[in-house]
Structure formats: structure tokens, C-alpha cells
Design a protein around this nucleic acid. Structure first.
Length: 345
DNA sequence: ACTCTGATATACTTTACCTCA
DNA sequence: CCTGAGGTAAAGTATATCAGA
């Protein structure tokens, strides 16, 4: 936080940046704030390109972090990656670079709200080149930028520099209040595709796989880990949606079946009251046409002639609602359009 | 057997960014 | 062109579980 005060000193704007290379060579082994500070400055400086190159040569060391060192990982992010993840970045907005980089400086490639903070993971080399600036903040970000193809908003940003700069600066001033802002990383399509491929092979990673994948994609192991966590969550969510849809359809089918059976029951009761003949029939000899939903008798059980038949056990070879095709129809005969076929199961 | 610790998982939340009306 | 709502994805947090010391 004291660093922010130092940054505010526009009277000596980054004379030390000429020593960026020298400083950054030690960043992997030290964690003091000054270095992180210097690197952060470098990202906004037009003289920092070489320092970034130097950083690139060191960032491989980062990936040596195992997953058992998550906390240390955070520290490393600030130092070895040259990307101040927590404290100083916001202060960087106050860099007196702004007069030097009038409009484009705060809007190149980055999103409106982030560009003025001095570094932006979403900045793209193309746009940076357009404004004659080196904008990436670390080797990882450099690679990341290389991964990304041009996107629509890059060109848009170039066209809206003035407005973007104004918005960015206003937002930056807001965020300077607390000095904390979480930068959002967007994985490139290539990175995502590679992670997807890995996910297809195994949905969980052991530490070795995680580190290897992180190295391969120039990400931190923690990022790979988080990606897999979120990916599993998304998979589960999708599966839940599919299950829900399936159960919904089952419910609808059962509701329809229930409605049909109710109607069938009503038909049977009506038949029983209006036609004593049908009242003597065993229930299993009656069925309903699923298309017109009217009751019919089946030929397998001829109408009883004696009342005692009503008590005799009948063994229907099929469910009541699924009669055989040879049905006796007391209602209008079947036609090609309406053959009184039983419903499909 | 019990406790402690660290790693890792899931569930849920927060945050930054994007898209679109 | 601007803006707000809503969606998405990365990251954070809380908690549970398990293995090993």
C-alpha cells in the first residue's frame, strides 16, 4: 500500500525502470513488495518490453509450485509472474503515464473497467501494437495474449478510445478507494480446448497431471485445478438438467395415463348403468380405444350368459388398457382413419 | 482407537466480463 | 452511443471426507 504513495510521485517517473531487467532477474527468489511494484510498473512502461522478455525466462520457475503450496502460490503470483494480484495494481492507475498515454492507454484491447489499472490480462498484442505499447504484465500474460485471437471488442476498443478512457479512469478512481480488485482471466480457446480434451480423458487430476497441464498451458496449477472444479460442476449441472427433463416427461406421461384411466373408469361406470349387458361382463373383457377413448369388449371373453360368470376368475393376458386387436366394438366400427387400435405401450 | 493435519472434493457465492435489448 | 439486465466463467469460501502420521 505504501507503494501506491510512491507511484503517486510523478516527479520521478520510473527512472528505475531502466533497471527493470536487473531487478526482475531476482524476482523468483524474493517476495518483497518493491519488486512486484517494479514489475507492475514495467507493464505500463514503454521501456518494459525487455523486462518482460526477461520475466518470460523466469516464469517457468513458477510452475514448480506443487499443489501443496497453494498459499505460496499466491505469493508467487505477485512476484514471479509480475502480476500483482492483490495490493498494488490499482495504484498503478495513478501512474503519471496517463498524460503520456492520453486516450489509448487506458483502452487498448482491455475491457473498459480494467484498462486504466495498468495491466490487463485481456489485452491483446495486436491492439497493443496499434498503440505502440507493450501491455502484457508477465510472461504468462504474454503467452496468453499470443494464444488469443483477435476479438470483436479489440477493434471496438480502438475506436472508442476516448470514451473508454474516460470510463476506465472513472472506474479506476472508484476502485482506488479500496485498492483491491480481482482481475479476471479469460482462457484462450486453445487453452480451453486443451483442457476440455484433458477433461474427456479424466475428470479429475492428480497433482502431477495438474502441474504438467499447467506447464503445458502456461497456467498456474491452481488455475487448472479451478478449471476442473468448475468443469465438473458444469457437467453435473447439465446432467441434472437432463435428469430433470426426463423426469418431467415421465411425470407428463403418467399424468396423461392417469387422466385416460379416469376417463376409462367413467366410461365403464356409464356403461354399467345404461347397459346391463355390459354390467355382467368381467372387467377384463372391457377395454378402451386409446384414440377415441371409448369402451369396447374383447373377443377373448364372450359375454356371460349366467350371473355366476361374473364371479368367475378371469385371467386377462394383457392389461386392461392394452387390449388385443380383435376387439368387439359396440360403437361405430373401425375405419381406416380410426381403426380402434390399442395404444402403443 | 483416537486425534490432528493436509489434500482434495463438492456446493455455493462472488466477481469480472460479455452480450444484447 | 449508452445503459442495465442477465448470462457465463474464473476464482473465492465453507464444509465434508479421507488418508497418513
Amino acid at each position: 500500500m505504501e507503494l501506491g504513495l510512491s507511484l503517486g510521485d510523478s516527479s520521478k517517473p520510473f527512472g528505475f525502470l531502466s533497471k527493470a531487467r536487473e531487478i526482475t532477474t531476482t524476482t523468483t527468489t524474493t517476495t518483497n513488495g518493491l519488486q512486484g511494484f517494479c514489475m507492475a510498473l514495467g507493464i505500463n512502461s514503454s521501456t518494459s518490453a525487455r523486462a518482460q522478455q526477461k520475466l518470460h525466462s523466469h516464469d517457468e520457475d513458477d510452475d514448480e509450485d506443487d499443489t501443496s503450496e497453494e498459499e505460496e502460490d499466491e505469493d508467487d503470483d505477485e512476484t514471479t509472474n509480475g502480476r500483482p494480484s492483490l495490493d498494488p495494481p490499482v495504484q498503478l492507475n495513478l501512474l503519471p503515464l496517463s498524460p503520456v498515454l492520453p486516450d489509448n492507454a487506458s483502452s487498448e484491447g482491455g475491457s473498459p473497467g480494467t484498462a486504466a489499472r495498468g495491466f490487463d490480462v485481456n489485452r491483446l498484442p495486436a491492439t497493443a501494437t496499434a498503440v505502440g505499447e507493450e501491455v502484457t504484465s508477465s510472461s504468462f500474460l504474454m503467452d496468453f495474449c499470443m494464444f488469443r485471437g483477435g476479438k470483436k471488442r479489440d477493434s471496438e476498443a480502438a475506436g472508442n478510445d476516448a470514451v473508454e478512457a474516460e470510463r476506465a479512469s472513472s472506474r479506476a478512481s472508484d476502485e482506488d478507494e479500496n485498492g483491491l480488485s480481482r482481475k479476471k482471466l479469460r482462457l484462450s480457446k486453445e487453452q480451453s480446448a486443451y483442457l476440455e480434451e484433458s477433461f474427456k480423458e479424466h475428470t479429475t487430476l492428480n497433482p502431477k497431471q495438474k502441474v504438467a497441464l499447467a506447464k503445458q498451458l502456461n497456467l498456474r496449477p491452481r488455475q487448472v485445478e479451478v478449471w476442473f472444479q468448475n468443469r465438473r460442476a458444469r457437467t453435473k449441472l447439465k446432467q441434472t438438467e437432463v435428469d430433470c427433463e426426463y423426469l418431467k416427461r415421465c411425470c407428463e406421461n403418467l399424468t396423461e395415463e392417469n387422466r385416460r384411466l379416469h376417463k376409462e373408469l367413467q366410461e365403464l361406470r356409464a356403461l354399467k348403468t345404461t347397459n346391463p349387458f355390459y354390467a355382467q361382463l368381467p372387467a377384463t373383457t372391457l377395454t378402451m380405444c386409446p384414440s377415441c377413448e371409448r369402451v369396447a369388449t374383447t373377443s377373448t371373453a364372450p359375454p356371460p350368459t349366467k350371473p355366476t360368470d361374473l364371479t368367475s376368475k378371469t385371467t386377462a393376458p394383457f392389461p386392461l388398457s392394452r387390449p388385443p386387436s380383435n376387439t368387439l366394438f359396440p360403437f361405430p366400427p373401425a375405419t381406416p382413419d380410426h381403426p380402434h387400435q390399442p395404444a402403443a405401450s
